[in-house]
Write a protein that binds this DNA or RNA. Structure first.
Lengths: 131, 131
DNA sequence: CAACTTATGTAATAACATTACATTTAGATT
DNA sequence: AATCTAAATGTAATGTTATTACATAAGTTG
């Protein structure tokens, strides 16, 4: 996915996520953007979908929420697997990549002729500050 | 979590999941069990919660659905991480454990003083039969 | 039995996400 | 510039997933 000019809605949603300290739900984003003319969930979901396509936003499956990519410039999300730690106290999310985990998962899939699509790795717990 | 006598509702929910070829949503389970007297979502969610505590059922976060544990006798789910492949065509789920992945994730968490709780690893894709 | 904990029943509501359809905008083509 | 087309947008309605609140019943332990 190559660099991309964002539409107004996409830019607003990305800004909202970038400004947030923690992941936001689609409906929280909607509420934040009502002042900018947002009125319906679909406006948010559509922008989120594109932003995910562009590798600028990640969806955290285990908490139904979204975060801005930590290093979008590296096109990080297309070259492999992204994993997350998610603090259940403060919401802080850390994004990381581990080549060995990627290989092990790929090997497992390959052994079973399973063709992998999107992979989710999320560790919920408590961060250093909240321990 | 030690072996456990299940209540009627818990047993019914577990049986429904065990009989299914693919993961079931809570509401699908509810519909299957209406003939057994189930009337409300909470009956299902409460049973599912306990069954997860007992290590007899897993929740698949990325598809909001539940599966019976593939090898509940081994108490598999308490001794470590469980990972899944999920076929997006036929719904088939394969459960697996990988000690090295477990170690890598633990090491990452430890390095950052992140105290891990529940970890999710789910690979969505297409199984050999559906490729 | 009394006190307590666990499980259950039921209704209502909250939270998350999609379908359907009409309209507008932005780029490309002529 | 006028036209065409694909992408994006607006809006309403609905579908799906999960929880809160409160009342009742059943099992456990002193």
């Amino acid at each position: 996915m190559t660099a991309q000019q964002l539409t107004r809605n996409q830019a607003l949603v990305l800004d909202a996520l970038s400004a947030a300290e923690a992941p936001l739900s689609a409906y929280t984003i909607l509420d934040k953007l009502r002042g900018d003319g947002f009125r319906a969930p679909l406006q948010v979901y559509r922008a989120l979908e594109k932003l995910q396509d562009f590798g600028l936003v990640h969806r955290l499956e285990s908490i139904n929420a979204f975060v801005a990519c930590a290093h979008p410039d590296e096109d990080c999300c297309s070259h492999g697997l992204t994993a997350f730690t998610i603090c259940e106290s403060c919401g802080k999310v850390t994004e990381f990549h581990d080549h060995m985990i990627e290989e092990r998962l790929a090997a497992f899939a390959s052994d079973r002729n399973f063709r992998p699509g999107k992979t989710t790795i999320e560790i919920r717990g408590h961060c250093a500050g909240c321990a």
